[in-house]
Design a protein around this nucleic acid. Structure first.
Lengths: 208, 208
DNA sequence: TTATATTATTCAATCGATTGATTAATTTTG
DNA sequence: CAAAATTAATCAATCGATTGAATAATATAA
């Protein structure tokens, strides 16, 4: 096996194990076994177990932020911007729920400060961008005045909840987010719901 | 130190450590050290490390379900029921965010099936009760027809997001959920937001 | 009550197993 | 050949758990 293959297979196995069992719950021996590599190869390529973890998370988180930025600069109405950003955000999280689970766990642990900061900053980036769109909408009068931070908690919380909750709990009866076909259905349903919710909630009331 | 004290101090230290460092990230030696107990006392009282964990979670989860049931049987309108249930649910989660973090982590791990089931069932219980209230409201025409499961994801996701997200990320600038005074403010703000959101979103549109 | 038996609690010491990491030797590659 | 890649063997440290003995508390018997 060539170098690139072995390195990739370690990352692949490690990501799957970290996702399922958590960082502490995964041993380097498991990673080696599942990837078909010798234990020493982990330290040879990544320096340490934490090095593998950092590489996985860094690679995944990278690009997670830049993509949304362009949308917020498009010539669209605030509502169009908001819906588009959320759609992208939801798709990106649901296409890899395992990573989101991992990020969420890191966010609730005080074990690895460096990783905590990385995840926190990644999330904060998305937050401020969404915040700015909503504030703009309220300022120009196209949005009702609302508790912006709490609304963002609703947006991110909804997406997160769908991504994390066990199959068959969140969504109807038989859908399973781990099934590729169902995943598309769930994603569309989530986006449709968020659009409906935000349009109804943010559109100023004409009755008054 | 008397028996009850020692047993309690082990549980107390363990809960704090499990919350901060996760189950795998906490060693029995740490628990013993922080609680001032001998290591073997952990096994003497709880059988194993997992026994301590189960006891903590069981005690906390117990009662989390029954309390909401009475509300759903009160003589209230669907909207009043829904808002009351959510208020109770939010308060209960925010009064102990650490426990919620722990439950959430267990929900994303496939390490301890028994614990996973316990947490899952606890959440599912709350879910079906909220679901029934919303379905009733839609059936009798006092609620708009909506994607019920997705709306529940929004409700639970919002509360969860506020409970889990690091201080100063979710809510404004200086509020910290670990500060007892701020916690009240945040809880009230969250409840007010959810009430506003649900009333606006679920109230049938008179324009049409 | 007092002496004895039983049970519950606490302790230091240590168990075998596993952890992440390193070494030195070997193979593969260019 | 030399450099890079891979291996088996091993390291000290720590893991959760158990041991047997000592102490404290309680119950029983006289």
């Amino acid at each position: 096996m060539e170098k690139a293959d072995k390195k990739a297979s370690i990352l692949e196995a490690a990501e799957r194990l970290f996702t399922e069992l958590g960082y502490e719950g995964t041993s380097t021996r498991q990673i080696a076994k599942e990837s078909g590599a010798n234990m020493s190869m982990i330290n040879y390529y990544f320096g340490s177990k934490e090095g593998v973890f950092m590489e996985i998370m860094s690679k995944r988180i990278f690009g997670f932020n830049d993509q949304l930025l362009s949308i917020s600069q498009d010539k669209l109405s605030c509502m169009e911007k908001l819906l588009k950003v959320i759609e992208n955000y939801a798709k990106r999280i649901l296409c890899n729920p395992g990573l989101h689970k991992m990020m969420h766990r890191e966010l609730t642990l005080s074990q690895r400060p460096e990783m905590f900061l990385k995840v926190k900053n990644s999330m904060a980036n998305n937050l401020v961008m969404i915040e700015q769109i909503i504030i703009d909408g309220i300022t120009e009068g196209s949005f009702r005045p609302v508790d912006v931070r709490m609304l963002i908690a609703t947006i991110m919380g909804t997406i997160s909840n769908v991504a994390i909750s066990p199959a068959k709990i969140t969504y109807g009866t038989t859908l399973d987010i781990n099934n590729e076909e169902d995943k598309t259905i769930i994603t569309d349903r989530l986006i449709a719901h968020l659009k409906d919710l935000l349009i109804v909630y943010l559109t100023p009331n004409n009755d008054k």
